[in-house]
């Protein structure tokens, strides 16, 4: 995050190279943000390009470089929303992620494991957005709680609480099917 802030500071002052580096460093986080909203990697790609374009246009108008992570995250979230509203959006079936299933012992195990993963995906998607976002960012994108708090512009305690709550819900819903 600090690197991003530093790069943002340089980009604000018109450093083209810094801007390019900033965009490259931001892309994975923006992708994660879009994915957290859309739940679909391919659809998130489009949102990332839009986000980067907006960031490139607007970074010079940023009041303070410290606000860059939250600002960029919000842009990515808005772009994801715009993508989600596109009438021609076709989300890829999450089952497509099972093209490389986890090694199992036989076809039955593969089938059961695939169904279980599908169930987990469905349950995560059904979570409220404020709970789903930290789950994606933490467990999928591997961001630490502190970084998530910074991105979501909230407190560390809130992020921890939401993660805990999301896990509780998932555990209660998924536990029954075991």
């Amino acid at each position: 995050m600090e690197t991003l802030v530093r790069l943002a500071e340089q980009a604000r002052s018109g450093d083209r190279l810094a801007l390019e580096t900033l965009l490259k460093r931001s892309a994975p986080i923006l992708h994660a943000a879009a994915r957290a909203r859309l739940g679909d990697s391919l659809a998130a790609d489009g949102a990332v390009v839009d986000s980067l374009t907006r960031i490139a246009r607007g970074v010079r108008g940023l009041k303070t470089a410290d606000a860059y992570p939250q600002w960029a995250y919000r842009i990515a979230a808005r772009c994801a929303l715009a993508v989600a509203r596109r009438p021609d959006l076709r989300l890829v079936d999450p089952a497509a992620a099972d093209r490389h299933p986890a090694p199992t012992h036989g076809p039955v195990d593969t089938l059961v494991a695939a169904e279980r993963r599908q169930r987990v995906r469905d349950e995560i998607r059904s979570l409220a957005r404020r709970l789903r976002e930290p789950v994606y960012l933490h467990y999928v994108e591997g961001l630490e709680q502190r970084a998530i708090a910074r991105l979501l512009d909230t407190s560390l305690a809130t992020v921890n609480r939401r993660l805990r709550r999301a896990l509780e819900i998932l555990r209660s819903r998924l536990g029954e099917s075991r």
């Binding site: 892309a27 994975p28 992708h31 994660a32 994915r35 990697s41 790609d45 990332v48 992620a97 986890a102 279980r116 993963r117 599908q118 987990v120 995906r121 995560i124 789950v135 994606y136 467990y139 999928v140 994108e141 896990l167 998932l170 998924l174």
Partner: peptide, 13 residues
């Protein structure tokens, strides 16, 4: 948590 990671296997750019 492992299940969540496994189910949502990210496609990192």
């Amino acid at each position: 948590e492992q299940e969540i990671r496994s189910a949502l296997r990210p496609r990192r750019p």
